[in-house]
Each structure stands twice: as structure tokens, then as C-alpha cells.
Design a protein around this nucleic acid. Structure first.
Lengths: 227, 227
DNA sequence: GTCAAGGATATTGTATGCAAAAATGTCCAG
DNA sequence: CTGGACATTTTTGCATACAATATCCTTGAC
């Protein structure tokens, strides 16, 4: 099952730019110059423009008519809003998954949970991040609604940089892991309402979590620099 | 407040194509030839390709590498999945709106409700459709989460053709109106849980509604023809 | 008559060219 | 020294040109 497009510069460039933006290689609001980026990627402006438009569609950059493309780093308020929506989307995935997940789904989710535990045991933030990602994504797919899964993944991608930051907060990893275990148990029990509640709590940014997010957000913004 | 881009062929073409697809001017799966469409719109392939890529991002067409763009009319299953998600998104909007809507929001929503009633009284399907659209959109914005409102509008656009078909079903308009009234009352009462429940019911496709949708879907598919 | 191989044709993906608008810099009035 | 009008430079948006691949059609073997 070798996947998709062999070539297609546009997609390669979009992915590269996406990563660069998410990783903070551009300042918030930085203008993305078509010519210099085209040079950097050794392509003409055509595929580069297409990549920029794709990024605009996913919300990572803003296109201003005859002005160019600008990195659009969401405000703290925007991030909180997105997390609110994400919490509901994930809760919905969990609710459906509790009712519909197959045996294969369950073992895959369990495997991801074990991977989370292993990473947490070794204080492996990067590993936990990946296993966490898998855990959630597997639940999206176990929900048995491909459209929902697609939306969930899209939002997850958009929130990627903030999720990562969150895990760095002291004590967040163990708490996250505990919640994962509870979610998994509720899933296995088929208790849709419990999964909904727990998933919402797991994702929602509230109370101390908000302050953590605000702090990490500010430090993230500070850390960014012009490319 | 004159809005946005004065020119920009790409956007004009995207909107025109979007309307054509949604209105059923192309058969499901029809290939959208770049050259002939460019001719039709009297532009070069460049802005046309950009429009196609934007449509691909919003899910209306599928781009296959070196094959071209194909109209992607969602399957009945896809539509049901989208309505499931839409029901939750709208329910969430309603829940927030019940807590947060301002006095202005409330009067705007009430005005839309009255417009719905007026249109229903005259059996004006088109008018009801528009007022219905406003009613829902105003609730999205009353929710006080711009990201959520954006997502809701995006999904609503995607479901446009099916919403419209649904209203044609006998007896659907009065029922819809009744539900609108209940939702509005619950909103005014600030009863978030009741709004959530009622909005979910209002949007969800279940029981008889599913059969209606399936029937209208099939007739819609039949009605489509190659452009 | 069917089917495969090979080339002609058509169509996409990318590069380049051009016109118009925006950004920038210069010069001069005050 | 500051501010604004004008010319210059950049940069975008679109058109055109070219290269590579997919599709179609012909031809011929069996």
C-alpha cells in the first residue's frame, strides 16, 4: 500500500511550509514572499502559489488580495476557541466509538495506550506526543464516521503546536495518561456518556490548564523569529 | 462596509463553479476539464486551476494526480455522516448561544424566526429556505466563538443542496418551524441543555427523516446531468 | 474478432512572461 | 527636520509556453 502522489511539487511545498510555520520558523504575521520562497524550493512561483492557497484554506496563512500571503498565527483567544470545538469533536468521536468500535479498533487503541504508558515511564515527551496522537486518531476512526474523523484530524493538525506545548507543562503528562486510561476503560465498557464527559474534560482548556496554555502560548510567540 | 476583493477572477470562478456543482449542473464524478472551463469563463488555466484546488479543499471536487478534477457528489452515507456532525456542531452553537447571546443577537434571531413564519404561512419554500438559513447562522454567531461559527458555516454550505431538498418533503416546513420556535424559546430561557437537545433533533437525520433524505437524495442524483 | 503494443493526441503540472497594483524611495516644500 | 507628491522598484495576478504523463486510437498478431 504505497501511498499517493509520487511527485507533485505543490504538495511537497505545502507540507514543508506547513511544518515550517507550525515549528515556528516564521514570525506571526510575516509575509511569505513568493519569489524568495520559490527560489528556496527551486521551483517557479506557480506551484508555490498553489501551496500558499492550500495553506490559506487550512487557515495557516492569510491571503490578502494583491498584498501577498501572511503567516496567521492564531491569537490566544483563537486557540482557546479551537480547543473548545476540538473538545466537543473529540467527545463526539468518543461517544460514537463507545458504541461502534470493533475488536480491532479496541486492540489498536489499547496498543497506543500502552505506548503512551511506556513513553511516560521514560519521560519521553516526543514519544508520548506521538503515542498520544495515535491514541486520539484511532478513536476518531473507531467512531465509524469518516467525515467526522476527517474533521477531527484536520482540527488536530491545526492545534498541533499547542498540543505539543501543553505536554511540556509539569505534571501534564501523568494526568493526560490517567485520563487516557479512564477513557479507554469507559470505551471498553461501552459507556458513551462517560466517554463523552471524560474526553471533553481531557481536551478542554479550563482553570489551571488555561493559565498553562496562556503561558506556553506567550513563550511560544516570543520564541518565534523571522525567517 | 463594502466587502473585500474588487476583482480576483479565481474567487469569482470558484463561486461560480461551486454554485454550478451544488445546483447540479454536473453529473456526479464528471471530470472538470481545465481548458474547456477556462474557455467558458474566458480566462487562462491558471486562475481556473486555483479555483479547482479551492473547491477540492472544501470537498466539492476531488483532484487526482495527473488525472484532473472530478465532481465529488457525496454518497448518501457521506451525507448522513455530515448531517450527524452538523447536528452536533449546531447543538454546540445552540448550547453556547443559550448562555452567551446578547440582546441584539436575540432580536436578530427573533426577526429571522418571524421571517420563517411569514414564509411558511405563504408556502414560500425559497423564502423559508433563506430565513431558515439566517436563523441558523445567527445562532452560530450568537454562540460567541468565531471559530465555531466559521466551521458551522462551512459545513452548512457543504450541506446546502440537501437542506434545500429536505424542505420540499411534505410537512417538513411546519415541523421545522415548530422546532425553530421551541429552540428560540429555550434560547431565551437560557436553557442550554434544552437547546442542545432540540437543535440536535432539529438537524439530525433519523427515522422517517432518513427515508425522506434517501428518497430526495436519489431523485437529486437522478436529476443531475452532464454539463 | 479480440487483445496487446506502440505511437499520436490530449491534458496536466510547471516555468516563464507580462501588465497592473502596491510598496518603496526620492525630492522638494514648508 | 518633517511631510507629502511623484517616480521607481517590487510583487502580485493572470496569460502563455513548454515538458511530462495519461489517454486514445491505430495497427497488427493470434
Amino acid at each position: 500500500m504505497t501511498e499517493g502522489p509520487i511527485d507533485r511539487r505543490t504538495d511537497q511545498i505545502r507540507e514543508a511550509l506547513e511544518e515550517m510555520i507550525v515549528e515556528g520558523h516564521f514570525a506571526d504575521g510575516a509575509r511569505l514572499d513568493e519569489v524568495s520562497l520559490a527560489d528556496r524550493f527551486s521551483v517557479s512561483r506557480t506551484p508555490l502559489r498553489e501551496a500558499l492557497q492550500a495553506l490559506a484554506a487550512s487557515g495557516l496563512v492569510e491571503l490578502r488580495h494583491r498584498r501577498g500571503a501572511f503567516v496567521r498565527f492564531p491569537s490566544l483567544e483563537d486557540v482557546v476557541e479551537m480547543f473548545d470545538v476540538m473538545a466537543e469533536i473529540e467527545a463526539l468521536c468518543g461517544r460514537y466509538a463507545a458504541r461502534r468500535m470493533s475488536a480491532e479498533d479496541q486492540s489498536a487503541i489499547e496498543a497506543a495506550l500502552l505506548a503512551c504508558e511506556a513513553a511516560a515511564a521514560q519521560q519521553d515527551v516526543e514519544g508520548y506526543y506521538r503515542a498520544n496522537h495515535d491514541f486520539h486518531r484511532l478513536i476518531y476512526h473507531a467512531a465509524g464516521n469518516r467525515f467526522l474523523a476527517g474533521e477531527a484530524e484536520r482540527l488536530q493538525r491545526r492545534l498541533t503546536p499547542f498540543r505539543r506545548l501543553q505536554l511540556r507543562v509539569r505534571g501534564r503528562m501523568p494526568e493526560s495518561l490517567r485520563q487516557h486510561r479512564q477513557i479507554f476503560e469507559a470505551l471498553v465498557a461501552g459507556d458513551a456518556e462517560r466517554v463523552t464527559r471524560q474526553m471533553r474534560e481531557h481536551i478542554a482548556v479550563q482553570g489551571d490548564r488555561f493559565n498553562d496554555l496562556a503561558a506556553t502560548y506567550r513563550s511560544a510567540i516570543r520564541g518565534r523569529h523571522v525567517a
